[in-house]
Design a protein around this nucleic acid. Structure first.
Lengths: 195, 195
DNA sequence: TTTTCAAATGAACACCCGTTCAGTTAAATG
DNA sequence: CATTTAACTGAACGGGTGTTCATTTGAAAA
C-alpha cells in the first residue's frame, strides 16, 4: 500500500479550519482570500482544496459544527427539576459556551448572508432547535405557574438576543468579573419572566 | 456662469447612497464593488467618485448618519415625568426607529470591522451616547427607587441587545402584529428592571 | 447662439480573486 | 531499497478590484 491515512493532513486540516475561523471573524468572509488562509497555514492556495471543495463549504462547515457542538453541549447538561432551576442552568450554560468562542459566535451570526440557500436552511434549522430548547423551559414555567410571559416564542428570541449580546461588549479584565456580570444577567432574565 | 449647482448631482447623490446602503446590507461591504453600486445607479464606476472620496467613506457616512439621526430623533422625544414612563418611551422609540430601518441597523452593527480606526472611534462614540441615554433612565429609576438593577451599565447594554435583536427575526405580516410584539417586549423590559 | 463647466464616460493602472491541474516531493509500505 | 501515493507546488485560467483621469456631453447662463 502506501502512506497511512493522513500524516500531514491530520495536522494541516485543523490548521486550515482555525485559520479560516480566525480570519473570517476578523475581516469577514468576503474580505478573506483563499491565499490569505493558505499563507496563515504555510501552504499554497491550491493545497486548501485538499480539505474543502470550495470557500463556501469552509464557511458552512464552521457554522454547522459550531451549532452542532452547541446543541450537543446543551443536551449533555443535566435536566434540573423545576423551570426556574432549568432556566438558571440555561443562562449560565449560554454564557459559558458562547463567551470563550467569540469568533464562532460572530461568524454564525454575521456571515449567514454568504451561505447558499441549502446551507442557510441547514444552519437555521440548527439554530431553531436551540431556540426551541429555551422556549420549552419557558413553557414548562408557564405550566408550573412560576413564569408569566405573554408569548413563549417571542420571549425566547428576546432572551437569547439579550444573552448573546454580552459577547459584543464583554472583555476579560474589564470593570466587572465575569461571575458578577453573569449574576446580573441572570437577575435580569429571571425577573423578566417570573410571575 | 454655468449650470446651477447640482442639476444631476441632486438626483445622483442620494441614489448612490441608497444603492450603497441596500447593497452593503444585502451582500456585505467587502462583497460589493463600486461597479455594482454604479450599475444600480445607472452610471459608470468613475462617476461615484464625484460623491465620495472612496468606498470606505461611503460606509462610514452611512453609519455616522444613521447614528446621528437616531440621537437627534431621541433628543426630540419629550421627556416624561418618572423613570418608568421614560423607559416605556425609550422602548417604544427604539422599536419604532429601528424596525423600519433594517438595512441601516444591519450595517451599523455588522460592518464595524471595515471602518478604519478614526471612523470606528467616531461611530463608537455616537453609539456610546445612545447607550448613555438608556443608562441615564435606569439611574433615574434607581434614584426614584422604582428600579432594582445591580449595575446600570450592564443592564443598559443587555436591554439594548434585547430590543435590537427583534430586528433579526421580526417580519411584517408574521404571527403577531407589531403592537402585540412591542407590548411583549415592554413587558419583559419593565419586569426585568422593576423593583 | 455661444459659452461654460458640472457631470459622466470609458479606458487604463497595477493588482487580487477562486479554482484547476500537471508535475514534484517525501515518507511510509512492502 | 523500490514502490506507492498523500500532500503539496506553482503556474495558469478568466475575470474582478478600487481608483484615476483625459475626454466628451449637454443643459443652463450669458
Amino acid at each position: 500500500m502506501a502512506r497511512k491515512q493522513g500524516s500531514h493532513a491530520d495536522i494541516t486540516r485543523p490548521r486550515v479550519r482555525d485559520a479560516a475561523l480566525r480570519l473570517f471573524a476578523q475581516h469577514g468572509y468576503a474580505a478573506v482570500s483563499m491565499r490569505q488562509i493558505a499563507a496563515e497555514v504555510g501552504v499554497q492556495a491550491g493545497a486548501i482544496y485538499n480539505y474543502t471543495p470550495d470557500k463556501q463549504a469552509l464557511l458552512a462547515d464552521l457554522m454547522r459544527d459550531h451549532l452542532e457542538e452547541l446543541l450537543a453541549a446543551w443536551d449533555s447538561v443535566p435536566t434540573e427539576a423545576g423551570a426556574v432551576a432549568r432556566l438558571r442552568r440555561f443562562v449560565r450554560f449560554h454564557l459559558d459556551f458562547h463567551l470563550p468562542r467569540p469568533d464562532q459566535v460572530f461568524i454564525a451570526y454575521m456571515e449567514l448572508r454568504h451561505l447558499d440557500s441549502a446551507n442557510f436552511a441547514g444552519v437555521e434549522a440548527l439554530r431553531r432547535r436551540y431556540e426551541d430548547a429555551l422556549e420549552a423551559i419557558l413553557r414548562a414555567g408557564l405550566a408550573e405557574g412560576v413564569f408569566a410571559v405573554r408569548d413563549t416564542r417571542v420571549a425566547a428570541m428576546a432572551l437569547i438576543a439579550l444573552l448573546t449580546g454580552l459577547g459584543n461588549w464583554y472583555r476579560a479584565g474589564g470593570r466587572l468579573p465575569l461571575d458578577e456580570i453573569a449574576a446580573i444577567y441572570w437577575d435580569l432574565v429571571r425577573k423578566a419572566v417570573l410571575a
